[in-house]
Amino acid sequence: MAVIDLANPTRFLALVNRVLPWLVAATALVFAIGLYRAAYAPDDYQQGATVKIMFLHVPAAWLGMMGWVIMSAAALGTLVWRHPLADVAGKAVAPIGAAFTLICLITGALWGRPTWGTYWVWDARLTSVLILFLLYLGVMALYWTAEEPGRGARAAAILTLVGAVNIPIIKFSVDWWNTLHQPASVLRLGGATIDASILVPLLIMAGAFTLLFITLHLAAMRNEILRRRVRSMRLMQAQTMAEARS
């Protein structure tokens, strides 16, 4: 069974080491295509070339959210099935998700400057993303403060699931709050009527970001497994030293 094979961290490490170079190459290739297509995409008639920030901003937002979905799946794996790799996956994905969310926020601010005339506007979508970022930081803070990886993983898993329940509510409340205080967002990407000349490069960029995300995630999982091995080796060392003395 392939899944059971992967549950074994050693097999997982071997697989990652084999797959990672290909993933890196694929990421670079798709990024090259995506950036090329994005560079030659037509400018917006109102916003000019600044609209091209979208090709970074929108995929980053998608993956920022996908990070939480992966983290929630890993949280279920940790709490329900006690899967050893689920811990590792959850811990590894948190900083990556946070980084993509931060990219979304920064590109949003850079985009906002020419569009709104200010770097930050309490726009519903930006605000929701900001809160998502804060939630990521909370999960990361939990991992940092936990002395023992297993304990931290279970605590972070619970917080992740609480967040997963809350994120739609937060999104809804922020949207509601926004309509109360402000006219509808300045930013309108005309819904389904995006022209193919923009949609195709956007989708390619989304693919490139996804590949980057997977590459980083697998590499981070590998690092985390190795880190845990170092930890248990040190524990063993301390234990054998103590036994030798007594």
Binding site: L134, A141, N166, I169, I170, F172
Partner: peptide
């Protein structure tokens, strides 16, 4: 740090 973002709604 953990809880305040969840109290936004």
């Amino acid at each position: 740090v953990l809880i305040l973002p969840l109290t936004v709604p």
